[in-house]
């Protein structure tokens, strides 16, 4: 764990996990973005899980940063997943014209870990849409590696076009 202002970054196996628990000002957001990229590069993590369930507003600035983190992670051969966007925040982002196209999302940290092919330690597996699943409904055993099952990308953005931005 290394401190980045008030936002601690954890490394669990080959996943980098960050849970944002404080009201972020812009400088803190930018530092987090830099530190995450550094951490992914240093550890070769296969996934970055960003838990925003404590965040009660996401404006276009933070949305852009989440988007950039995803793009940066992809360039570093990693997958970023944003977890726990609240309903009111989701509605506002959509109204704002920012459906975070290209950013992967999951309802919980466990679900995000399952999407990355990592079994979270504590709970029974939550199988999110599109995660690699064998026909009997169990998570496949063994390491999925980075070459994910193509089905895992199935639920990537499917935004319809309502406005031009979308």
């Amino acid at each position: 764990m290394r401190p980045t202002g008030a936002v601690p970054i954890l490394t669990l196996g080959d996943v980098v996990l960050v849970s944002i628990q404080v009201e972020l000002h812009d400088e803190l957001v930018l530092r987090l973005q830099q530190d995450l990229a550094q951490q992914v590069a240093d550890t070769g993590a296969r996934g970055v899980v960003i838990d925003v369930s404590a965040i009660d507003i996401v404006d276009s600035f933070l949305a852009k940063v989440l988007h950039d983190i995803s793009a940066t992670a992809a360039m570093l051969a990693s997958t970023a997943i944003v977890v726990g966007i609240r309903p009111a925040v989701a509605i506002t982002l959509v109204e704002l014209g920012l459906p975070l196209r290209g950013v992967r999302t999951a309802p919980s940290v466990n679900a995000a870990f399952a999407m990355l092919g990592v079994r979270a330690a504590s709970e029974r597996p939550h199988v999110p849409p599109g995660s690699p699943v064998s026909p009997d409904g169990r998570l496949p055993s063994g390491d999925r590696g980075r070459e994910d099952d193509p089905r895992a990308h199935d639920h990537l953005p499917r935004e319809p076009r309502v406005r031009e931005m979308w």
Binding site: T105, P107, P129, H155
Partner: peptide, 17 residues
């Protein structure tokens, strides 16, 4: 129709389909 679409997009943001 737009509301339905927005609902689908918001659900996606929350990690559901």
């Amino acid at each position: 129709a737009q509301h339905l679409l927005k609902t689908a997009m918001a659900a996606r943001l929350m990690g559901a389909e």
